[in-house]
Write a protein that binds this DNA or RNA. Structure first.
Lengths: 221, 221
DNA sequence: ACAAATCCGTTGTTTTTCCAACAGAAAAGG
DNA sequence: CCTTTTCTGTTGGAAAAACAACGGATTTGT
């Protein structure tokens, strides 16, 4: 577990907690580790979830395939983000989506019950952990709302622009790289890939932006 | 405050907490109340949020108007649900959306800091509250993901069917009423109202469903 | 290094949505 | 009760997206 401490101390969930405290908390929370290779399913629709997971490294996609085989990437999990938190609620049923490793990934599992039940004697940082967890979930919540705001744009062009400009703002630079290939970006925005590709090239020809694979640069107009 | 106890005890946030304990907790959390008339803005984009809010009665819409004046209902808040939780994170900036009362509403405000900081001596039910709060947020998270799954459907027809069938499942009946008028439903699903109205009538003519104002009945095919 | 698979841009056709406009029905307000 | 406003369905034309198909470039795997 020791090897993950340096990773974890940079996550929102453990921010403000010292190295030694993280280590003892991992023990207190009965943390376990699993590795996934690229393309491997971490969870499938219909499974029961018992733990809170945090992505230590790699990239996960929360996705859903509907009756007609259309694939939709509902959300992307980046290192330091948690997932599974919605299924900890008692009687919340089974997982509604698939979780797949977009690249080789390392996932830490925590006993949820132990996070929420305070043990002041054993863990002086437990209160901090609870706050952090709350912050982390709130951030996730916010990112879901953001995704909704991209998707609520009516045209593919507007969806692209709202996503790309947000991403530029998030990465604090007009040049940035996105964690999607074209098909994944299309799935994320719920549009057709070829139409989106077309629109991207139009935007480039109009001088709004430039791109090279997954590297984008937005231009002032 | 006493008058809200019977309401609150039925909410997820206070479930499992006795009447007297709720009352003392409201005091501990420095709860305050505000009423909004139909159409009134509870918050506007750009404001700072300091409290966690819970909707005691009525109905709120989280909505966003873009540069071009398109209105999008990002989410609907029903009684017992919380909101504002994403803006409690330190340095999370200002509210990105408007919050408007879709009908006369009553909102309770709680001091967020006091919720997350455990006071075992004063409030024996504080641990329970933290759990409940976590559950509540998780539920909200889930409903956001659900909304994303509606919006990710490619056609207006599929958006309608996925939303309506989920709503039927949620209300546990093939006959149910939805909390939207046509324009609001169109905004919620991010489609054009007239096209959606058209599609609804087609679905009715094909025998898939019936409706009367906001009352819908889905038919087996 | 080579074969296979994937990724990406491009194009033309079909389908769907958007938009504007209107009229009847229903609701709200005085 | 009457007027005004909102709500809903309906339409036709304009615009956009979806879809299918293809070739070249790149990547992957062996």
């Amino acid at each position: 577990m020791k090897q993950y401490v340096s990773l974890l101390k940079r996550t929102k969930l453990f921010s403000g907690v010292g190295d030694n405290d993280i280590l003892s908390m991992l023990d207190c929370l009965k943390a376990t580790v699993r590795h996934y290779i690229k393309g491997e399913y971490a969870f499938r629709q219909g499974e029961y979830i018992h733990d809170l997971m945090i992505l230590a490294a790699g990239r996960l996609h929360i996705q859903k395939e509907d009756y007609w085989g259309n694939l939709n990437i509902l959300n992307e999990i980046r290192p330091g983000e948690i997932f599974g938190e919605a299924y900890i609620v008692p009687n919340s049923g089974t997982l509604m989506n698939d979780v797949i490793a977009a690249e080789a990934s390392t996932v830490l599992f925590f006993d949820m019950e132990r996070i929420l039940t305070v043990c002041p004697a054993a863990c002086p940082f437990h209160t901090q952990l609870i706050k952090n967890m709350f912050y982390t979930i709130s951030d996730k919540n916010k990112s879901l709302v953001q995704k909704i705001s991209y998707m609520s744009q009516r045209s593919t062009r507007e969806k692209l622009l709202s996503y790309l400009s947000d991403e530029a703002k998030r990465q604090n630079s007009s040049s940035f790289s996105i964690p999607f290939n074209r098909q994944q970006l299309a799935d994320f925005l719920s549009v057709d890939r070829s139409a989106m590709s077309n629109e991207l090239c139009k935007l480039r020809d109009e001088g709004m932006l430039d791109f090279h694979k997954s590297e984008f640069t937005l231009h002032e107009m």
